[in-house]
Design a protein around this nucleic acid. Structure first.
Lengths: 188, 188
DNA sequence: GCAAATACCTAGAGGCTCTAGGAAGCGCGG
DNA sequence: CCGCGCTTCCTAGAGCCTCTAGGTATTTGC
């Protein structure tokens, strides 16, 4: 019978698409196999287990997010860079919810350190913050604040947690403005 | 044979405890039943299904969180109130991770509006922000920012996302300081 | 064109949710 | 104090999931 032509990468990519459709924690090897017209057991030749598949999605997604942010920030500085960074981040989270959720999954720190995508994301944050004249430990503190705001907003918006009539995109832009103010007047 | 004496409330409370132990999305009716020395099918007399049980945990947890925040903020105003609010929030998320995760689960907005706990949490946020002299739509925007920061920080810290040596509690206090600055100089 | 590598299969164990229907403990009125 | 009915808890089982073991078929590389 004809083969589906599976590889670890094609499986991971399809899993990421599936995650965007049904949610990161709802992906299933059985459903994924169905999409390929294949039995679920067959996928275990390409992927160790569900846990590892999720890890693969996370790595893939982190790289894609880093690409987007990199492209958005390129050639910008200061407040412009902050706004571009923030919008690119939010857009990714909204457009690719499954992939985005994957990037936030709990991951073994040792593995995380070796990940290209994750490293690049941290790099670009720090580069942006240094432009505000911050040094350690303020750099770490401000970086954590930024990640908290962006991630928190993405989660709350994604969960439909903003019931109000006020458009989330407007609130988001204001939040970024407020962050800019906070970064310009970083407390000591 | 002796009965376990189950009620909807005891089941929900035990489920919340289980969630704090194993994680909100890892709770299982089978495991919960095991804890009571009972078969999983028996729980369906008290709880409609897993989804409803999760909802019950969320309602319970939202009330508990509101209690803590209410107690922490009582008698304080301005920056003091902000700090007390933030710390109470973070402590709850750290001490009761399963319950906290439950409060952030996607919930039917109609049901959410009827929930005592959720309503009280929103109330206390708005009360705090009005003390900064904010009005709509700034009130909504600032509220969303606060929730984003607190939730984002809780998630990232809970996931072990802060690999750095810098203590999260210090970063958190600085973040709250920065928020205070942003609220005092809210952009228009 | 043959051997090795690999893509895919069947079979099956074990865990989970949830339904249907039955039996055992409990409280109540007589 | 005794049976009646409600509630609690049970067994049985269907359906979906993960993952292992071992087999067959298709490609690829020499």
């Amino acid at each position: 019978m004809a083969r589906a032509g599976l590889t670890a990468e094609r499986v991971t990519r399809a899993a990421a698409d599936l995650a965007d459709e049904v949610g990161f924690e709802n992906i299933t090897l059985t459903a994924l196999a169905r999409g390929f017209g294949v039995k679920d057991a067959s996928l275990y030749s390409h992927v160790k287990n569900l846990q590892e598949l999720r890890l693969g999605i996370a790595m893939l997604a982190a790289g894609e997010l880093a690409d987007r942010i990199g492209a958005a920030v390129a050639g910008r500085a200061g407040k412009d860079a902050l706004i571009a960074f923030a919008r690119a981040y939010r857009e990714f989270a909204l457009e690719r919810p499954g992939r985005y959720a994957a990037t936030q999954a709990r991951i073994d720190p040792a593995l995380l350190a070796t990940s290209e995508g994750y490293r690049r994301n941290i790099e670009s944050t720090y580069a942006m913050l240094r432009a505000y004249g911050l040094d350690e430990p303020d750099l770490t503190d401000a970086g954590r604040l930024l990640r908290s705001v962006f991630h928190g907003f993405a989660v709350l918006e994604g969960n439909g947690g903003f019931g109000h009539v006020r458009r989330p995109s407007e609130s988001f832009d204001r939040a970024v403005e407020a962050l800019h103010v906070a970064l310009m007047n970083w407390p000591d």
